[in-house]
Amino acid sequence: MSIQPLLAHVQSSSLKSDAPEFQIGDTVDVHVRILEGDKERIQIFTGIVIARRGQGTSENFTVRRIVAGEGVERIFPIHSPKIAKVEIVRRAIVRRAKLYYLRDRIGKQAFRLKERPIEKKKETGRARTRVKARKARQAAAATEEAAAPEKKKRRRKTKKTAGDAES
């Protein structure tokens, strides 16, 4: 069904001309503008895009990540001015438009998607942001791990989180 022309006209002022481009299954850094008092800062939410729905100004996407063994999902409106940018850190091959099945997965499985063999370089960038985020959460432990190579680190972390979930 096509949208009423006058409604489209109303929406046009709220739409971003440079709407972020990404696909389902991509691991993304969502840069969110946060107003604290009168200061603005950027917070980054990293996770897998598991759904995208709606149209026009109400179009939004869902990003899922695992925080301390607990699944966290945030829904962002694509055209919100509060979304500064969306950076793709990893792409994946997926065969579904909605990755809700990830919700039933535990531990390593939860973010293990077949990677698309591109943008290898950005892997390091992602690792860096991950470490930064972890540092903020658990200062002492994170600094030790930061020295370890990236791949191993991820595995170790997942094992730990899986263990947390069980206990």
Binding site: L6, R33, G56
Partner: peptide, 19 residues
């Protein structure tokens, strides 16, 4: 009445509006 949609204001807040 034309219909409903949503728009963002300058601060980035969403308003459900009737046009």
């Amino acid at each position: 009445k034309i219909g409903m949609t949503q728009v963002f204001d300058d601060e980035g807040n969403v308003h459900p509006v009737t046009v």
